[in-house]
Amino acid sequence: MIKKKSLWQQSQPWVITIVVVGIFLWGFSGIPLNGIKSTAGQVLGSILNGLFHPDWSYVYSGDGEDLITALLETLAIAFLGTFISAILAVPLAFWAAKTTRKFFSPKSATGKLLLTVIRVFPELVLAIMFTKAVGPGAYAGVLALGFHSVGMMGKLFSEAIENIDRGPNEAIAAAGGSALDGLTMATFPAVLPEFMNYTLYRFEISVRSASILGIVGAGGVGAPLIFALSTRSWPRVGIILIGIVVMVTAIDFISGQIRKRLV
């Protein structure tokens, strides 16, 4: 016998749809829509013209002020910011991970709160802060990416720790092993592939982020890009955008191939 749906079950899809549409309308109502400037088409056409007629002489000049140097600096910022923060995120992840069946764990709650506070500030805001603190350059970019990545990877690492099978740890404890034995022989081998996978994925994101940090003076390819835009050097803008696309695509492909072998 087919059970008749209640009034709420029948109206639930409509209620959800109305609520979602209402949220969208409320969100757009707070955005001032000033229209499109009359020069938008001209600027877009100039950028496209720069992409089809790039300044190839800027690719490499040997003076340290070329595209290759800027892209390598961007990769260095992303690499240092990501992989150093991955090491720092491991102890924070074990602090934040909830490994007991208790409803509330003070250790886990304080660790998660700390990681949340670290993740509050986006990379661009951190780059501005560190640029004022240590001066403009790649060092500020590394600090900005590293600080933000600690919070992101700490959260992902802690979730990986929480989701592992506790059977091997319990077996080691039953055999008389210590907590350190369980950590080194059961927990770490189980979570290490996930740690590496998340680190590589975060590196892909950091490469994109490092490409724009130079806009606020934190090094990388963003600085020559914003300078070329401000001086309306469209061929220079075109070759920089092409360089960024090629770099990001190559990093995504290589990282994806490595992650396939890890998971």
Rank of each mutant, 00 (worst) to 15 (best):
residue 110 T to H: 10
residue 146 G to K: 00
residue 262 L to C: 11
residue 227 F to Y: 12
residue 197 N to A: 14
residue 94 F to C: 06
residue 221 V to E: 02
residue 261 R to N: 15
residue 182 G to V: 13
residue 190 A to Q: 09
residue 226 I to M: 08
residue 162 E to W: 05
residue 234 W to Q: 03
residue 20 V to G: 15
residue 110 T to M: 15
residue 212 I to S: 01
residue 118 I to T: 01
residue 28 F to G: 07
residue 128 I to M: 00
residue 178 S to D: 08
residue 130 F to C: 00
residue 91 P to V: 07
residue 76 A to E: 12
residue 157 F to E: 02
residue 69 T to V: 15
residue 25 L to C: 13
residue 185 M to Q: 14
residue 117 V to F: 07
residue 199 T to Q: 11
residue 39 T to G: 06
residue 2 I to C: 03
residue 21 V to C: 15
residue 63 D to A: 12
residue 12 Q to T: 13
residue 108 S to K: 04
residue 63 D to G: 13
residue 22 G to A: 08
residue 185 M to P: 06
residue 245 V to Q: 07
residue 17 T to I: 12
residue 212 I to C: 00
residue 158 S to H: 02
residue 94 F to A: 05
residue 251 I to C: 09
residue 95 W to C: 00
residue 2 I to S: 15
residue 7 L to G: 07
residue 189 P to I: 05
residue 67 L to P: 02
residue 203 F to W: 10
residue 148 H to T: 01
residue 177 G to K: 09
residue 151 G to R: 00
residue 234 W to Y: 14
residue 230 S to G: 11
residue 121 F to C: 00
residue 191 V to Q: 03
residue 237 V to Q: 02
residue 248 V to H: 03
residue 121 F to T: 09
residue 197 N to G: 10
residue 106 P to C: 07
residue 258 I to L: 13
residue 228 A to G: 04
residue 60 Y to H: 11
residue 167 G to V: 15
residue 47 I to R: 04
residue 219 G to Q: 00
residue 260 K to D: 10
residue 105 S to A: 06
residue 206 S to F: 03
residue 153 M to N: 08
residue 199 T to R: 05
residue 94 F to M: 09
residue 14 W to L: 13
residue 164 I to P: 04
residue 109 A to M: 13
residue 181 D to E: 15
residue 123 E to P: 01
residue 107 K to I: 09
residue 214 G to N: 00
residue 209 S to R: 04
residue 87 I to P: 06
residue 89 A to M: 04
residue 101 R to E: 08
residue 51 L to T: 10
residue 161 I to V: 11
residue 221 V to T: 07
residue 37 K to A: 12
residue 70 A to Q: 12
residue 189 P to E: 07
residue 30 G to Q: 14
residue 66 D to A: 11
residue 72 L to M: 12
residue 48 L to Y: 13
residue 53 H to S: 15
residue 167 G to N: 10
residue 101 R to G: 15
